[in-house]
Nucleic acid binder design. Structure first.
Lengths: 230, 230
DNA sequence: GAGTGGTCTAGACCACGTT
DNA sequence: ACGTGGTCTAGACCACTCC
């Protein structure tokens, strides 16, 4: 027989009580044992439910003190990051890309700094325009640390750098930042826009754990939004 | 004796094998039972480790077929959303805000649409300028469905709307979207900037589950970034 | 020292999806 | 039908933290 209170049901019930203000922000809630007794299930089941709520920022839990409803809730917004081709195709649009530039270069100091590298090193500089239904969608400006990459393809016209990396250097460490910036005259031209125009910008930097791999700046055409539920 | 392979150690070991390409994208990995035997632990411990990796988008798991390394990884980027005061103070800056406008108004159709409300309803329109170290930081434009809110404070000069809501309507459902926009002349003036200027914009809409509560647009002064590790 | 959450175990049954 | 992950149980020990 299916237990009437699985961990998801318990999580939902706890959320209900919090939203109904039966348990108010800052207030203690019963211990796992008490709730297990109330719901007629094992403590591990209650633990699973409360652990997920703590992870979501709804509860604060400490040994000995017990669990409280968060007083200053820190909600977590989670966004999916995937390769550009799938993002475009996921909207039902056709995907294409154009390699604008590919050359060895000494990057600006800001890029070296983001990668934590010393000066005067040459990196592979790739600039790519991504298209959705043949309309400019995203301008990619990437620096690649070729020293740590095995078997680089002869050129990146067949498969985008983006996809080559996720296939060949999977699950690297990294960080990502979102911001807004005015398009430079060249960016506006490449995206087919007239200035002034505001671009949504995502910057990613990735490492293998010891060596830096790549720093990339993605400038999205106007209208782009990243969205999620809370 | 502490088990040499707790679930975190197993998660780390699986990640190591994936990054070392011992287990390549698209490839099957052993079943939970096999790994439990290999690591000398209970299946539940392996399950915990693999479940977290599936949640992070690293593994794809299906009953009967088993677990595979994701071929087209969808990494999850998670950002913390908190009240503006804590965000500013968390940077070591002093926080203040100015209530610019507070009046009952019929909102534009776009706002009613986001809230899923029918036309011609009056909502409370609040515009607030948030300051960090006395410098304009964020321009907030909010519409509040006063009909569902109990005990509204007399005015929002003492406590920001933001904080009043998290205390009194905790853990509502909602969505959030990030985008970029050119500042309007008025926005530029209020933020003390000269046009043209690109603003980072966050839009949130929240419900109690049945009734809409608020729709808010947050326009951040240049330099603002949301950042996280992957 | 004592109370609470964090984790692990060994076993069980079920849900799902492939065959 | 069968194999695999998803969940639950009852119990145990430990880690942390407050007293």
């Amino acid at each position: 027989m299916k237990p009437p209170f699985g961990w998801e049901a318990i999580r939902a019930e706890v959320m209900r009580r919090i939203r109904a203000r039966e348990w108010q922000p800052g207030q203690s809630i019963p211990t796992e044992e008490q709730m297990a007794a109330e719901f007629g299930c094992a403590r591990a089941t209650v633990n699973r439910a409360l652990r997920e709520l703590a992870l979501a920022g709804v509860l604060e839990r400490r040994r000995k003190s017990g669990s409280r409803v968060a007083l200053n809730p820190v909600r977590k917004a989670s966004f999916d990051i995937t390769v550009t081709r799938l993002e475009v195709e996921g909207r039902g649009q056709s995907y294409a890309f154009v390699l604008l530039e590919e050359r060895e270069q000494v990057p600006p100091a800001a890029v070296l700094d983001r990668l934590g590298m010393a000066g005067n090193q040459q990196l592979l500089h790739l600039r790519t325009l991504h298209l959705a239904d043949a309309v400019p969608f995203l301008l990619e400006d990437r620096w690649l640390n070729t020293g740590v990459l095995p078997d680089l393809p002869r050129d990146f016209r067949a498969m985008s750098v983006n996809e080559w990396l996720v296939r060949n250097m999977p699950f690297t460490y990294g960080d990502i930042a979102f911001s807004a910036a005015l398009a430079t005259p060249e960016e506006a031209r490449l995206l087919g826009l007239t200035e002034p125009v505001a671009l949504f910008v995502a910057e990613r930097t990735t490492w293998t754990g010891d060596a830096p791999i790549t720093a990339v700046r993605l400038a999205y055409a106007p209208g782009y939004r990243v969205q999620t539920v809370l």
